[in-house]
């Protein structure tokens, strides 16, 4: 059961996006998230403009489509990352649906009501979250965890000048990523073992349930310490900390691909900013105005 949970795990391929420098992808992921933030989440208060404000989402969708095509990752593995947070999205959407008072009331029951504005902001909220998750999953899908750790290390290098141990932090991150699946599997085994000894984890009050976790957590801690101990020996044995001039097997070199990617994503950011501050629904009017006949 737990085995199937994906941590946005790396999908090996040799695509344009895979070949990008990890730093590029890290930075552009941030650009993407920022851009997403600037897309308006509600239209205007005017009822006839309830349909406005979708332009940014359409552009984002198109941009992601291009990225996915260039990343050559299967849609399935991207959708899987959405599945993991589906519950949260649904929950937020439901709450959002009932809170807005603006617009025309479409449905009401006792104190609950849904307005058309609420419907639109909810759709936009869902779009925003789904697009965010898809966009953010591109990085781990196309970049090995080691490359991500290396990229972070390189981007954070300036912090090293003020004596922040950047390299060790990157190493910790890399090891943590490496051991997540191992510890997951181990947890599963321990749960099965204790269940076989009659333990149950889903009965009783909160206190009882917390207490029921002890037979899981203690073996897990004990084995994690043992693993850490052995790993330390293995790392020492392989000359960790032998020199300050550690070299890198993975090379981070920016190339023409990175330049293109920067241009593309920044163009996207500019479009989103123009849409918000300069065009202000002009695009929506052009696209939806005629269609809605208003």
């Amino acid at each position: 059961m737990f085995k199937d949970i994906s941590f946005g795990q790396y999908y090996p391929a040799n695509s344009f996006v895979h070949k990008l420098d990890a730093r590029t992808k890290l930075l552009l992921t941030i650009v993407f998230i920022v851009a997403l933030f600037f897309i308006p989440s509600n239209a205007t208060n005017r009822v006839d403009q309830a349909w406005y404000g979708y332009f940014g989402y359409m552009v984002t969708f198109a941009v992601l489509l291009v990225v996915i095509i260039f990343a050559r990752v299967p849609i399935g593995s991207i959708l899987k990352s959405i599945k993991g947070v589906l519950f949260i999205i649904v929950l937020m959407a439901v709450i959002n649906l009932f809170v807005s008072n603006q617009g025309e009331v479409l449905w009401a029951w006792k104190r609950l009501h849904i307005t058309d504005t609420a419907v639109h902001t909810t759709i936009k909220l869902i779009l925003r979250l789904v697009l965010l998750i898809i966009g953010a999953s591109i990085l781990p899908l196309t970049t090995t965890p080691v490359a991500i750790a290396d990229g972070l290390e390189s981007l954070l290098k300036p912090l090293g000048w003020i004596k922040v141990p950047i390299h060790d932090m990157a190493m910790i991150l890399s090891i943590a990523l490496r051991f997540i699946p191992t510890l997951f599997e181990e947890t599963q085994k321990i749960v099965a073992t204790q269940k076989a000894r009659g333990a149950s984890f889903d009965t009783g009050n909160l206190f009882k349930r917390a207490k029921a976790l002890i037979p899981i957590l203690i073996p897990l801690f004990v084995s994690s310490f043992r693993r850490a101990d052995e790993l330390a020996f293995a790392m020492d044995s392989r000359c960790y900390n032998a020199t300050n001039k550690r070299t890198k097997y993975r090379v981070n070199r920016m190339g023409w691909r990175d330049l293109l990617a920067f241009l593309f994503m920044n163009a996207y950011l500019v479009v989103i900013l123009l849409d918000r501050y300069y065009w202000v629904f002009e695009m929506d009017r052009i696209i939806f105005g005629g269609w809605l006949g208003k």
């Binding site: 181990e186 085994k189 009659g198 002890i214 073996p219 084995s223």
Partner: peptide, 18 residues
């Protein structure tokens, strides 16, 4: 059934906790 069938998994020493 769970009580009737005792289960000793691989490396059972890793289940110890008390």
């Amino acid at each position: 059934i769970r009580f009737d069938v005792g289960m000793v998994f691989q490396y059972p020493e890793y289940q110890l906790f008390a």
